[in-house]
Nucleic acid binder design. Structure first.
Lengths: 250, 250
DNA sequence: CGGAAATTTGAGCAATTTCAACATGGGTGG
DNA sequence: CCACCCATGTTGAAATTGCTCAAATTTCCG
Protein backbone atom coordinates (compact mmCIF):
# COMPACT_ATOMS: atom_id res chain seq x y z
CA UNK A 1 0.00 0.00 0.00
CA UNK A 2 1.21 3.50 -0.73
CA UNK A 3 4.23 4.36 -2.81
CA UNK A 4 7.41 2.36 -2.69
CA UNK A 5 10.85 3.87 -2.79
CA UNK A 6 11.47 2.80 -6.33
CA UNK A 7 9.65 5.81 -7.69
CA UNK A 8 11.79 8.72 -8.65
CA UNK A 9 10.69 12.30 -8.66
CA UNK A 10 11.39 13.71 -12.07
CA UNK A 11 11.37 17.18 -13.43
CA UNK A 12 11.32 17.13 -17.15
CA UNK A 13 10.46 20.20 -19.11
CA UNK A 14 8.75 18.43 -21.96
CA UNK A 15 6.53 16.57 -19.57
CA UNK A 16 5.67 19.72 -17.68
CA UNK A 17 4.61 21.20 -20.99
CA UNK A 18 2.16 18.41 -21.59
CA UNK A 19 0.59 18.93 -18.22
CA UNK A 20 0.17 22.60 -18.87
CA UNK A 21 -1.68 21.98 -22.07
CA UNK A 22 -4.41 19.68 -20.86
CA UNK A 23 -7.99 20.80 -21.50
CA UNK A 24 -8.63 21.00 -17.77
CA UNK A 25 -6.32 23.99 -17.59
CA UNK A 26 -7.56 25.69 -20.73
CA UNK A 27 -8.17 29.38 -20.29
CA UNK A 28 -5.89 29.76 -17.31
CA UNK A 29 -2.82 31.96 -17.26
CA UNK A 30 0.59 30.37 -16.75
CA UNK A 31 0.69 31.87 -13.28
CA UNK A 32 -2.59 30.27 -12.37
CA UNK A 33 -1.35 26.93 -13.64
CA UNK A 34 1.75 27.35 -11.46
CA UNK A 35 -0.45 27.66 -8.44
CA UNK A 36 -2.51 24.63 -9.36
CA UNK A 37 0.60 22.54 -9.91
CA UNK A 38 2.12 23.47 -6.57
CA UNK A 39 3.11 20.42 -4.61
CA UNK A 40 2.80 18.18 -7.64
CA UNK A 41 5.59 16.00 -8.96
CA UNK A 42 6.15 13.75 -11.91
CA UNK A 43 6.87 10.14 -11.00
CA UNK A 44 8.13 7.23 -13.02
CA UNK A 45 6.19 4.00 -12.94
CA UNK A 46 7.82 0.98 -14.53
CA UNK A 47 5.76 -1.54 -16.45
CA UNK A 48 3.12 -3.28 -14.29
CA UNK A 49 3.83 -1.04 -11.33
CA UNK A 50 0.75 -0.28 -9.29
CA UNK A 51 -0.25 3.38 -9.02
CA UNK A 52 -3.11 2.85 -6.62
CA UNK A 53 -5.28 0.01 -5.42
CA UNK A 54 -8.95 -0.36 -4.65
CA UNK A 55 -9.77 0.83 -1.12
CA UNK A 56 -6.62 2.93 -0.86
CA UNK A 57 -7.40 6.46 0.23
CA UNK A 58 -7.47 8.98 -2.60
CA UNK A 59 -4.45 11.25 -2.23
CA UNK A 60 -3.71 12.58 -5.68
CA UNK A 61 -5.15 13.69 -8.93
CA UNK A 62 -3.15 12.16 -11.77
CA UNK A 63 -2.07 13.39 -15.17
CA UNK A 64 -0.36 11.07 -17.63
CA UNK A 65 2.82 12.66 -19.00
CA UNK A 66 4.00 9.64 -20.97
CA UNK A 67 3.10 6.01 -21.38
CA UNK A 68 -0.14 4.13 -20.89
CA UNK A 69 -2.10 3.57 -17.72
CA UNK A 70 -4.76 0.94 -17.10
CA UNK A 71 -7.61 1.31 -14.63
CA UNK A 72 -9.35 -1.96 -13.82
CA UNK A 73 -11.49 -4.03 -11.51
CA UNK A 74 -10.96 -7.52 -10.33
CA UNK A 75 -14.19 -9.39 -9.93
CA UNK A 76 -14.84 -12.10 -7.39
CA UNK A 77 -14.10 -14.84 -9.91
CA UNK A 78 -10.66 -13.52 -10.77
CA UNK A 79 -11.88 -11.89 -13.94
CA UNK A 80 -10.21 -8.60 -14.76
CA UNK A 81 -12.21 -5.89 -16.46
CA UNK A 82 -10.62 -2.69 -17.69
CA UNK A 83 -12.54 0.42 -16.79
CA UNK A 84 -10.40 2.84 -18.73
CA UNK A 85 -7.10 3.24 -20.53
CA UNK A 86 -5.26 6.54 -20.21
CA UNK A 87 -2.63 8.02 -22.47
CA UNK A 88 -0.46 11.11 -22.48
CA UNK A 89 -2.44 14.18 -21.50
CA UNK A 90 -5.26 12.27 -19.85
CA UNK A 91 -6.30 13.12 -16.33
CA UNK A 92 -7.49 10.32 -14.11
CA UNK A 93 -9.07 9.90 -10.74
CA UNK A 94 -11.27 12.95 -11.29
CA UNK A 95 -14.10 11.00 -9.75
CA UNK A 96 -11.94 10.38 -6.72
CA UNK A 97 -11.90 14.11 -6.15
CA UNK A 98 -15.55 13.99 -5.18
CA UNK A 99 -16.20 10.50 -3.96
CA UNK A 100 -17.95 10.41 -0.64
CA UNK A 101 -15.77 7.82 1.01
CA UNK A 102 -12.55 9.21 -0.50
CA UNK A 103 -11.36 5.71 -1.32
CA UNK A 104 -10.38 4.40 -4.70
CA UNK A 105 -12.89 2.04 -6.27
CA UNK A 106 -10.50 0.67 -8.85
CA UNK A 107 -6.92 -0.46 -9.33
CA UNK A 108 -4.54 1.37 -11.57
CA UNK A 109 -1.22 0.24 -13.01
CA UNK A 110 1.29 1.37 -15.60
CA UNK A 111 0.93 -0.72 -18.77
CA UNK A 112 4.32 0.29 -20.06
CA UNK A 113 6.88 2.56 -18.49
CA UNK A 114 4.89 5.63 -17.64
CA UNK A 115 5.42 9.09 -16.24
CA UNK A 116 2.60 10.42 -14.17
CA UNK A 117 2.16 13.76 -12.50
CA UNK A 118 0.58 13.56 -9.08
CA UNK A 119 -1.18 16.57 -7.61
CA UNK A 120 -2.08 16.44 -3.93
CA UNK A 121 -5.80 16.38 -3.86
CA UNK A 122 -6.48 18.65 -0.90
CA UNK A 123 -4.46 21.49 -2.23
CA UNK A 124 -6.03 21.03 -5.63
CA UNK A 125 -9.54 21.11 -4.21
CA UNK A 126 -8.79 24.34 -2.44
CA UNK A 127 -7.49 25.89 -5.60
CA UNK A 128 -10.45 24.80 -7.65
CA UNK A 129 -12.65 27.23 -5.80
CA UNK A 130 -10.58 30.14 -6.96
CA UNK A 131 -10.70 29.32 -10.64
CA UNK A 132 -14.17 29.08 -11.99
CA UNK A 133 -13.11 27.83 -15.38
CA UNK A 134 -11.59 24.72 -13.82
CA UNK A 135 -14.91 23.90 -12.25
CA UNK A 136 -16.56 24.18 -15.63
CA UNK A 137 -13.95 21.97 -17.28
CA UNK A 138 -14.28 19.41 -14.52
CA UNK A 139 -18.03 19.32 -14.92
CA UNK A 140 -17.84 18.81 -18.61
CA UNK A 141 -15.20 16.11 -18.34
CA UNK A 142 -17.38 14.23 -15.86
CA UNK A 143 -20.33 14.59 -18.18
CA UNK A 144 -18.19 13.23 -21.01
CA UNK A 145 -17.40 10.22 -18.89
CA UNK A 146 -21.05 9.59 -18.21
CA UNK A 147 -21.96 9.89 -21.87
CA UNK A 148 -19.19 7.50 -22.84
CA UNK A 149 -20.12 4.97 -20.19
CA UNK A 150 -23.74 5.10 -21.26
CA UNK A 151 -22.67 4.52 -24.83
CA UNK A 152 -20.67 1.55 -23.62
CA UNK A 153 -23.69 0.08 -21.85
CA UNK A 154 -25.77 0.46 -24.97
CA UNK A 155 -23.13 -1.02 -27.20
CA UNK A 156 -22.79 -4.07 -24.99
CA UNK A 157 -26.53 -4.51 -25.09
CA UNK A 158 -27.15 -3.98 -28.77
CA UNK A 159 -24.00 -4.54 -30.80
CA UNK A 160 -22.00 -7.63 -31.73
CA UNK A 161 -18.44 -7.94 -30.54
CA UNK A 162 -17.27 -7.19 -34.07
CA UNK A 163 -19.20 -3.94 -34.17
CA UNK A 164 -17.92 -2.94 -30.76
CA UNK A 165 -14.36 -3.61 -31.83
CA UNK A 166 -14.80 -1.65 -35.04
CA UNK A 167 -16.05 1.35 -33.15
CA UNK A 168 -13.22 1.08 -30.66
CA UNK A 169 -10.56 0.99 -33.36
CA UNK A 170 -11.92 4.10 -35.04
CA UNK A 171 -12.02 5.84 -31.71
CA UNK A 172 -8.43 4.85 -30.93
CA UNK A 173 -7.20 6.03 -34.31
CA UNK A 174 -8.90 9.31 -33.77
CA UNK A 175 -7.97 10.01 -30.19
CA UNK A 176 -4.31 9.22 -30.83
CA UNK A 177 -4.32 11.21 -34.03
CA UNK A 178 -3.01 8.23 -35.99
CA UNK A 179 -3.06 7.82 -39.74
CA UNK A 180 -6.23 5.92 -40.65
CA UNK A 181 -4.48 4.59 -43.77
CA UNK A 182 -2.24 2.52 -41.56
CA UNK A 183 -1.15 2.55 -37.94
CA UNK A 184 0.10 0.29 -35.20
CA UNK A 185 -2.15 -0.70 -32.35
CA UNK A 186 -1.08 1.18 -29.23
CA UNK A 187 -2.27 -1.61 -26.93
CA UNK A 188 -1.93 -5.35 -26.62
CA UNK A 189 -4.94 -7.23 -27.84
CA UNK A 190 -5.55 -8.74 -24.44
CA UNK A 191 -5.86 -5.24 -23.01
CA UNK A 192 -8.32 -4.28 -25.70
CA UNK A 193 -10.38 -7.37 -25.02
CA UNK A 194 -10.49 -6.58 -21.33
CA UNK A 195 -11.46 -2.99 -22.12
CA UNK A 196 -14.30 -4.13 -24.35
CA UNK A 197 -15.63 -6.69 -21.90
CA UNK A 198 -14.97 -9.64 -24.15
CA UNK A 199 -12.62 -12.61 -24.12
CA UNK A 200 -9.37 -12.53 -26.00
CA UNK A 201 -10.58 -15.41 -28.14
CA UNK A 202 -13.71 -13.50 -29.07
CA UNK A 203 -11.65 -10.51 -30.11
CA UNK A 204 -9.36 -12.70 -32.10
CA UNK A 205 -12.26 -14.21 -33.99
CA UNK A 206 -13.80 -10.79 -34.56
CA UNK A 207 -10.73 -9.52 -36.39
CA UNK A 208 -11.32 -11.24 -39.72
CA UNK A 209 -14.93 -10.09 -39.65
CA UNK A 210 -13.78 -6.48 -39.50
CA UNK A 211 -13.15 -6.46 -43.23
CA UNK A 212 -16.88 -6.22 -43.73
CA UNK A 213 -16.76 -3.06 -41.65
CA UNK A 214 -14.00 -1.48 -43.68
CA UNK A 215 -11.15 -2.35 -41.33
CA UNK A 216 -8.17 -4.52 -42.05
CA UNK A 217 -6.09 -5.81 -39.15
CA UNK A 218 -2.92 -7.83 -39.61
CA UNK A 219 -1.03 -8.49 -36.41
CA UNK A 220 -0.68 -5.11 -34.78
CA UNK A 221 -1.21 -3.21 -38.00
CA UNK A 222 -4.56 -1.55 -38.67
CA UNK A 223 -5.87 0.06 -41.80
CA UNK A 224 -9.22 1.60 -42.59
CA UNK A 225 -10.31 0.71 -46.08
CA UNK A 226 -13.45 2.79 -46.26
CA UNK A 227 -12.01 6.26 -45.95
CA UNK A 228 -13.59 9.14 -47.82
CA UNK A 229 -11.62 9.92 -50.96
CA UNK A 230 -11.75 13.63 -50.29
CA UNK A 231 -8.58 15.54 -49.55
CA UNK A 232 -9.56 15.70 -45.91
CA UNK A 233 -9.04 12.34 -44.36
CA UNK A 234 -9.50 13.86 -40.98
CA UNK A 235 -12.12 11.48 -39.68
CA UNK A 236 -12.38 13.07 -36.30
CA UNK A 237 -14.54 11.38 -33.77
CA UNK A 238 -14.22 13.93 -31.10
CA UNK A 239 -14.40 12.49 -27.63
CA UNK A 240 -17.95 11.89 -26.62
CA UNK A 241 -19.43 14.66 -28.64
CA UNK A 242 -22.90 14.06 -29.84
CA UNK A 243 -21.29 12.90 -33.06
CA UNK A 244 -19.61 10.04 -31.29
CA UNK A 245 -22.95 8.52 -30.62
CA UNK A 246 -24.22 9.15 -34.11
CA UNK A 247 -21.15 7.57 -35.62
CA UNK A 248 -21.33 4.59 -33.32
CA UNK A 249 -24.45 3.53 -35.12
CA UNK A 250 -23.49 4.60 -38.60
CA UNK B 1 -40.60 19.84 -30.18
CA UNK B 2 -41.16 22.15 -27.26
CA UNK B 3 -44.09 21.97 -24.88
CA UNK B 4 -47.64 21.60 -26.03
CA UNK B 5 -50.52 23.51 -24.53
CA UNK B 6 -51.87 20.49 -22.75
CA UNK B 7 -49.47 20.99 -19.87
CA UNK B 8 -50.81 22.84 -16.92
CA UNK B 9 -48.75 24.84 -14.52
CA UNK B 10 -49.45 23.59 -11.06
CA UNK B 11 -48.62 24.93 -7.68
CA UNK B 12 -49.04 22.28 -5.10
CA UNK B 13 -47.59 22.68 -1.68
CA UNK B 14 -46.80 19.03 -1.09
CA UNK B 15 -44.92 18.87 -4.35
CA UNK B 16 -42.99 22.00 -3.58
CA UNK B 17 -41.98 20.38 -0.33
CA UNK B 18 -40.49 17.42 -2.14
CA UNK B 19 -38.44 19.68 -4.33
CA UNK B 20 -37.08 21.52 -1.35
CA UNK B 21 -35.89 18.34 0.26
CA UNK B 22 -33.78 16.91 -2.52
CA UNK B 23 -30.15 16.18 -1.69
CA UNK B 24 -29.03 18.72 -4.25
CA UNK B 25 -30.36 21.49 -2.02
CA UNK B 26 -29.09 20.05 1.23
CA UNK B 27 -27.41 22.61 3.42
CA UNK B 28 -29.10 25.59 1.84
CA UNK B 29 -31.39 27.96 3.70
CA UNK B 30 -35.01 28.24 2.62
CA UNK B 31 -34.26 31.67 1.23
CA UNK B 32 -31.47 30.30 -0.92
CA UNK B 33 -33.77 27.59 -2.21
CA UNK B 34 -36.32 30.26 -3.08
CA UNK B 35 -33.76 31.94 -5.25
CA UNK B 36 -32.76 28.70 -6.96
CA UNK B 37 -36.38 27.85 -7.67
CA UNK B 38 -37.13 31.23 -9.21
CA UNK B 39 -38.70 30.88 -12.60
CA UNK B 40 -39.43 27.20 -12.06
CA UNK B 41 -42.85 25.65 -12.35
CA UNK B 42 -44.40 22.26 -11.79
CA UNK B 43 -45.98 20.74 -14.87
CA UNK B 44 -48.24 17.79 -15.34
CA UNK B 45 -47.28 15.17 -17.88
CA UNK B 46 -49.88 12.55 -18.68
CA UNK B 47 -48.87 8.94 -19.32
CA UNK B 48 -46.56 8.57 -22.36
CA UNK B 49 -46.24 12.30 -22.81
CA UNK B 50 -42.84 13.35 -24.05
CA UNK B 51 -40.84 15.66 -21.80
CA UNK B 52 -37.95 16.17 -24.19
CA UNK B 53 -36.51 14.51 -27.26
CA UNK B 54 -33.02 13.76 -28.47
CA UNK B 55 -31.49 16.78 -30.22
CA UNK B 56 -33.86 19.23 -28.58
CA UNK B 57 -31.99 22.10 -26.97
CA UNK B 58 -31.60 21.76 -23.23
CA UNK B 59 -33.78 24.36 -21.56
CA UNK B 60 -34.55 23.05 -18.12
CA UNK B 61 -33.29 21.09 -15.20
CA UNK B 62 -35.98 18.67 -14.05
CA UNK B 63 -37.09 17.42 -10.66
CA UNK B 64 -39.68 14.67 -10.36
CA UNK B 65 -42.42 15.67 -7.92
CA UNK B 66 -44.64 12.67 -8.52
CA UNK B 67 -44.85 9.72 -10.87
CA UNK B 68 -42.24 7.90 -12.90
CA UNK B 69 -40.14 9.20 -15.75
CA UNK B 70 -38.25 7.12 -18.33
CA UNK B 71 -35.12 8.29 -20.12
CA UNK B 72 -34.26 6.20 -23.17
CA UNK B 73 -32.52 5.85 -26.48
CA UNK B 74 -33.84 4.52 -29.70
CA UNK B 75 -31.21 2.64 -31.65
CA UNK B 76 -31.05 2.46 -35.42
CA UNK B 77 -32.79 -0.92 -35.47
CA UNK B 78 -35.82 0.31 -33.55
CA UNK B 79 -34.56 -1.15 -30.30
CA UNK B 80 -35.39 0.91 -27.24
CA UNK B 81 -32.97 0.95 -24.36
CA UNK B 82 -33.76 2.67 -21.09
CA UNK B 83 -30.94 4.79 -19.75
CA UNK B 84 -32.57 5.63 -16.47
CA UNK B 85 -35.81 5.59 -14.54
CA UNK B 86 -36.62 8.50 -12.26
CA UNK B 87 -38.98 8.67 -9.33
CA UNK B 88 -40.17 11.28 -6.92
CA UNK B 89 -37.30 13.42 -5.69
CA UNK B 90 -34.95 12.51 -8.51
CA UNK B 91 -33.29 15.23 -10.50
CA UNK B 92 -32.65 14.61 -14.17
CA UNK B 93 -30.85 16.23 -17.01
CA UNK B 94 -27.97 17.22 -14.75
CA UNK B 95 -25.61 16.20 -17.53
CA UNK B 96 -27.46 18.53 -19.85
CA UNK B 97 -26.39 21.40 -17.63
CA UNK B 98 -22.82 20.97 -18.81
CA UNK B 99 -23.03 19.32 -22.18
CA UNK B 100 -20.95 21.07 -24.79
CA UNK B 101 -23.56 21.15 -27.52
CA UNK B 102 -26.42 21.93 -25.11
CA UNK B 103 -28.63 19.41 -26.83
CA UNK B 104 -30.38 16.45 -25.28
CA UNK B 105 -28.83 13.09 -26.10
CA UNK B 106 -31.81 11.07 -24.95
CA UNK B 107 -35.58 11.02 -25.02
CA UNK B 108 -37.65 11.34 -21.88
CA UNK B 109 -41.29 10.53 -21.30
CA UNK B 110 -43.70 10.17 -18.39
CA UNK B 111 -44.35 6.49 -17.67
CA UNK B 112 -47.46 7.22 -15.68
CA UNK B 113 -49.06 10.55 -14.91
CA UNK B 114 -46.19 12.60 -13.57
CA UNK B 115 -45.55 15.98 -12.08
CA UNK B 116 -42.24 17.51 -12.92
CA UNK B 117 -40.66 20.74 -11.80
CA UNK B 118 -38.79 22.55 -14.53
CA UNK B 119 -36.09 25.05 -13.67
CA UNK B 120 -34.82 27.27 -16.47
CA UNK B 121 -31.27 26.22 -16.97
CA UNK B 122 -29.62 29.58 -17.54
CA UNK B 123 -30.91 31.10 -14.38
CA UNK B 124 -29.96 27.97 -12.49
CA UNK B 125 -26.43 28.00 -13.82
CA UNK B 126 -26.00 31.58 -12.74
CA UNK B 127 -27.21 30.76 -9.28
CA UNK B 128 -24.94 27.78 -8.94
CA UNK B 129 -21.93 30.04 -8.81
CA UNK B 130 -23.23 31.75 -5.75
CA UNK B 131 -23.82 28.62 -3.72
CA UNK B 132 -20.75 26.53 -3.32
CA UNK B 133 -22.52 23.64 -1.67
CA UNK B 134 -24.65 23.12 -4.75
CA UNK B 135 -21.54 22.74 -6.83
CA UNK B 136 -20.29 20.09 -4.44
CA UNK B 137 -23.60 18.22 -4.52
CA UNK B 138 -23.66 18.37 -8.29
CA UNK B 139 -20.16 16.98 -8.51
CA UNK B 140 -20.93 14.12 -6.24
CA UNK B 141 -24.17 13.28 -8.00
CA UNK B 142 -22.32 13.16 -11.31
CA UNK B 143 -19.69 10.93 -9.76
CA UNK B 144 -22.44 8.66 -8.47
CA UNK B 145 -23.79 8.40 -11.98
CA UNK B 146 -20.40 7.41 -13.32
CA UNK B 147 -19.91 4.79 -10.62
CA UNK B 148 -23.34 3.33 -11.29
CA UNK B 149 -22.83 3.26 -15.03
CA UNK B 150 -19.49 1.56 -14.60
CA UNK B 151 -21.12 -1.00 -12.35
CA UNK B 152 -23.70 -1.55 -15.06
CA UNK B 153 -21.02 -2.14 -17.67
CA UNK B 154 -19.32 -4.67 -15.45
CA UNK B 155 -22.52 -6.43 -14.58
CA UNK B 156 -23.45 -6.82 -18.22
CA UNK B 157 -20.01 -8.25 -18.89
CA UNK B 158 -19.73 -10.64 -15.97
CA UNK B 159 -23.14 -11.52 -14.56
CA UNK B 160 -26.02 -13.63 -15.82
CA UNK B 161 -29.35 -12.00 -16.50
CA UNK B 162 -30.71 -13.63 -13.35
CA UNK B 163 -27.99 -12.10 -11.22
CA UNK B 164 -28.50 -8.71 -12.80
CA UNK B 165 -32.21 -8.88 -12.14
CA UNK B 166 -31.69 -9.94 -8.54
CA UNK B 167 -29.41 -7.00 -7.93
CA UNK B 168 -31.87 -4.65 -9.58
CA UNK B 169 -34.78 -5.80 -7.44
CA UNK B 170 -32.85 -5.32 -4.22
CA UNK B 171 -31.83 -1.89 -5.37
CA UNK B 172 -35.43 -0.98 -6.22
CA UNK B 173 -36.71 -2.20 -2.88
CA UNK B 174 -34.09 -0.16 -1.16
CA UNK B 175 -34.35 3.06 -3.08
CA UNK B 176 -38.12 3.15 -2.79
CA UNK B 177 -37.98 2.23 0.86
CA UNK B 178 -40.32 -0.72 0.29
CA UNK B 179 -40.90 -3.62 2.64
CA UNK B 180 -38.52 -6.41 1.63
CA UNK B 181 -40.96 -8.96 3.08
CA UNK B 182 -43.37 -8.14 0.30
CA UNK B 183 -43.93 -5.31 -2.11
CA UNK B 184 -45.39 -4.52 -5.50
CA UNK B 185 -43.15 -3.82 -8.45
CA UNK B 186 -43.24 -0.12 -9.19
CA UNK B 187 -42.56 -0.70 -12.90
CA UNK B 188 -43.89 -2.85 -15.68
CA UNK B 189 -41.69 -5.80 -16.47
CA UNK B 190 -41.10 -4.60 -20.00
CA UNK B 191 -39.66 -1.37 -18.60
CA UNK B 192 -37.38 -3.33 -16.29
CA UNK B 193 -36.18 -5.48 -19.15
CA UNK B 194 -35.41 -2.42 -21.22
CA UNK B 195 -33.59 -0.87 -18.28
CA UNK B 196 -31.48 -3.97 -17.79
CA UNK B 197 -30.61 -4.33 -21.45
CA UNK B 198 -32.32 -7.68 -21.85
CA UNK B 199 -35.33 -8.97 -23.69
CA UNK B 200 -38.67 -9.30 -21.97
CA UNK B 201 -38.54 -13.04 -22.60
CA UNK B 202 -35.18 -13.31 -20.91
CA UNK B 203 -36.49 -11.47 -17.88
CA UNK B 204 -39.53 -13.67 -17.80
CA UNK B 205 -37.39 -16.79 -17.81
CA UNK B 206 -35.08 -15.36 -15.16
CA UNK B 207 -37.90 -14.93 -12.67
CA UNK B 208 -38.23 -18.55 -11.57
CA UNK B 209 -34.46 -18.76 -11.18
CA UNK B 210 -34.56 -15.93 -8.66
CA UNK B 211 -35.65 -18.33 -5.94
CA UNK B 212 -32.09 -19.59 -5.81
CA UNK B 213 -31.08 -16.01 -5.05
CA UNK B 214 -33.55 -15.60 -2.22
CA UNK B 215 -36.20 -13.73 -4.20
CA UNK B 216 -39.73 -14.82 -4.91
CA UNK B 217 -41.68 -13.06 -7.63
CA UNK B 218 -45.32 -13.81 -8.40
CA UNK B 219 -46.87 -11.49 -10.92
CA UNK B 220 -46.08 -8.01 -9.67
CA UNK B 221 -45.47 -9.15 -6.12
CA UNK B 222 -41.91 -9.48 -4.84
CA UNK B 223 -40.64 -10.98 -1.62
CA UNK B 224 -37.12 -11.47 -0.34
CA UNK B 225 -36.78 -14.79 1.39
CA UNK B 226 -33.24 -14.45 2.63
CA UNK B 227 -33.63 -11.54 5.00
CA UNK B 228 -31.58 -11.46 8.16
CA UNK B 229 -33.66 -12.56 11.14
CA UNK B 230 -32.39 -9.70 13.24
CA UNK B 231 -34.74 -7.00 14.40
CA UNK B 232 -33.29 -4.65 11.83
CA UNK B 233 -34.50 -5.65 8.44
CA UNK B 234 -33.22 -2.44 7.02
CA UNK B 235 -31.20 -3.85 4.18
CA UNK B 236 -30.05 -0.53 2.89
CA UNK B 237 -28.11 -0.53 -0.32
CA UNK B 238 -27.30 3.09 -0.38
CA UNK B 239 -27.17 4.54 -3.86
CA UNK B 240 -23.81 3.95 -5.43
CA UNK B 241 -21.85 3.95 -2.25
CA UNK B 242 -18.83 1.74 -2.26
CA UNK B 243 -21.05 -0.81 -0.58
CA UNK B 244 -23.29 -0.99 -3.59
CA UNK B 245 -20.45 -2.47 -5.53
CA UNK B 246 -19.48 -4.85 -2.77
CA UNK B 247 -23.01 -6.07 -2.43
CA UNK B 248 -23.43 -6.50 -6.14
CA UNK B 249 -20.96 -9.33 -6.01
CA UNK B 250 -21.99 -10.77 -2.66
C1' DC C 1 18.46 -19.79 -30.35
C1' DG C 2 15.32 -20.97 -26.46
C1' DG C 3 11.54 -20.16 -23.63
C1' DA C 4 7.85 -17.48 -22.04
C1' DA C 5 4.10 -14.71 -23.26
C1' DA C 6 0.64 -13.51 -26.50
C1' DT C 7 -2.41 -14.73 -29.97
C1' DT C 8 -4.91 -17.79 -32.97
C1' DT C 9 -7.65 -21.74 -33.91
C1' DG C 10 -10.80 -25.64 -32.93
C1' DA C 11 -14.68 -27.97 -30.76
C1' DG C 12 -18.24 -28.22 -27.59
C1' DC C 13 -21.20 -25.79 -24.44
C1' DA C 14 -24.19 -22.36 -22.21
C1' DA C 15 -26.77 -18.25 -22.36
C1' DT C 16 -29.54 -15.10 -24.77
C1' DT C 17 -32.12 -13.66 -28.66
C1' DT C 18 -35.57 -14.42 -32.01
C1' DC C 19 -39.82 -15.78 -33.75
C1' DA C 20 -44.10 -17.63 -32.87
C1' DA C 21 -47.83 -19.23 -30.28
C1' DC C 22 -50.37 -19.03 -26.23
C1' DA C 23 -52.14 -17.17 -21.64
C1' DT C 24 -53.70 -13.37 -18.65
C1' DG C 25 -55.96 -9.55 -17.33
C1' DG C 26 -57.96 -5.14 -16.97
C1' DG C 27 -61.09 -2.10 -19.05
C1' DT C 28 -64.87 -0.86 -22.33
C1' DG C 29 -68.99 -0.87 -24.69
C1' DG C 30 -73.04 -3.33 -25.37
C1' DC D 1 -72.80 -8.10 -15.97
C1' DC D 2 -70.60 -10.17 -19.62
C1' DA D 3 -68.13 -10.77 -24.00
C1' DC D 4 -64.50 -9.02 -26.30
C1' DC D 5 -60.17 -6.67 -27.13
C1' DC D 6 -55.72 -4.97 -26.73
C1' DA D 7 -51.77 -4.72 -24.02
C1' DT D 8 -48.81 -7.43 -21.35
C1' DG D 9 -46.46 -11.31 -20.04
C1' DT D 10 -45.28 -16.37 -20.52
C1' DT D 11 -43.66 -20.43 -22.82
C1' DG D 12 -41.51 -23.29 -26.50
C1' DA D 13 -38.07 -24.34 -29.96
C1' DA D 14 -34.53 -23.07 -33.13
C1' DA D 15 -30.71 -20.12 -34.19
C1' DT D 16 -26.85 -17.03 -32.71
C1' DT D 17 -23.40 -15.52 -30.18
C1' DG D 18 -19.94 -15.58 -27.04
C1' DC D 19 -17.58 -18.43 -23.50
C1' DT D 20 -14.58 -22.26 -21.91
C1' DC D 21 -11.00 -25.40 -22.33
C1' DA D 22 -7.34 -27.20 -24.95
C1' DA D 23 -3.93 -27.24 -28.31
C1' DA D 24 -1.26 -25.11 -31.97
C1' DT D 25 1.19 -20.90 -33.50
C1' DT D 26 3.45 -16.80 -33.46
C1' DT D 27 5.91 -13.08 -31.34
C1' DC D 28 8.80 -11.05 -28.22
C1' DC D 29 13.13 -10.71 -25.70
C1' DG D 30 17.06 -11.89 -23.42
Amino acid sequence: MGESMSQRLLINMAQMDIVRRIPLFAGLTEEEKDILLQGGGIYSYPRKKCIFREDDPVKYLYIVCAGIVQEFHETHDGHEITVNIYKMGDVFCTTGLFSKDSLHHTNTIAVDNAYVMELPIEKFKENIRKYESITAHLFSSLVQLIVMKQLEVEQQATMSSTQILAFFLRQVCDSYGLDPHGFTLPYKKSLIASRLGMELETLSRAIPKLKAHGIEVKGVHVRFTDLPVSAENVVRLFPASINTRKRAYA
